[in-house]
């Protein structure tokens, strides 16, 4: 086989690999994002057990992977004060095989003094980050939603 033919075959392999890899990774990432959002069991819940006491915030998700590739998904929830400093954070990483679904439960503990500051009008915010990696962690998408606490509770 001539060198030019070998290079031609290599070009075809690289191009085909790119197209197939791109299609499969996009399909997997879109599938996990859609599967997480429309999983039916997604919700943020804030609880304050007694007036003047500490509180907690829970995020429950059921991410699914309808794609053809394994996906590593990291879910993170963080509550930030008005200066952007984290008051508390929690995260969980799950490896989703094709067709797999796993529950993710995240919990934030908010101290009584921070609850008071929020009640008194501190502009706190909640940041929820979904980070997905697929195709041997070579391709990824990170989606961060930042909401004012007043809008959340």
């Amino acid at each position: 086989m001539k060198a030019v033919q070998v290079v031609g075959v290599l070009i075809t392999l690289v191009q085909l690999g790119s197209i197939v890899g791109f299609g499969l990774s996009l399909h997997t990432m879109a599938g996990v994002v859609m599967g997480t959002i429309s999983g039916g069991e997604m919700g943020i819940e804030m609880n304050v057990e007694e007036v003047g006491g500490p509180g907690s915030m829970e995020l429950n998700l059921s991410p699914q992977n309808p794609g053809f590739l394994e996906a590593t998904a990291t879910f993170e929830i963080m509550i930030l004060d008005d200066l952007g400093a984290p008051l508390d954070a929690d995260y969980e990483t799950v490896i989703l095989s094709p067709g797999d679904s796993q529950p993710v439960n995240l919990r934030l503990e908010i101290s009584a003094s921070d609850i008071m500051r929020i009640v008194e009008g501190m502009e706190a915010s909640v940041e929820v980050t979904i980070s997905l990696r697929t195709l041997y962690d070579l391709v990824g998408i990170t989606n961060t939603i930042k909401l004012e606490v007043g809008e959340t509770i």
Partner: peptide, 8 residues
């Protein structure tokens, strides 16, 4: 009520 940031 907020901002959505997506990094591809």
């Amino acid at each position: 009520g907020g901002v959505n940031t997506m990094l591809l």
